[in-house]
Amino acid sequence: MLLFSMGCLIILTQQNLIKKVIGINVMETSIFLFFLSIGNIIPGGPPIIRPGMEDVVYVNPLPQALILTGIVVSFSVTAFALAIIVSLYRFYGTVYVDELMKMR
């Protein structure tokens, strides 16, 4: 939760666009961490069931699968955002929002 609000704050307050993208990543990572902590069981092992050991306590594998998807999504969003920033930089020659606003 702390990381989430921190990421949000970074996105909203930072002037540097690259730092904003890092903020996005911080925010998304916090969500992933949250999901993983939901699925975690303290004495649990990895969710691999071997023959003869069916009743072992293991962590919930579903959130991990979900987060795998989530990581792919956040990766593509990051790549896309960086690509847009590159083309913005070609237009304006800066990655700072306040300078962008001045140039308009």
Partner: peptide, 29 residues
């Protein structure tokens, strides 16, 4: 120029939005 700028703004806010949605999905789960 305008389209690039607008799309970056859109992307950043959309990502924040979907972050909130994912967090809410986490709560529900």
């Amino acid at each position: 120029k305008e389209a690039t700028e607008a799309s970056l703004k859109y992307l950043l806010l959309a990502v924040i939005g979907s972050g909130f949605i994912l967090f809410a999905i986490g709560f529900l789960y």
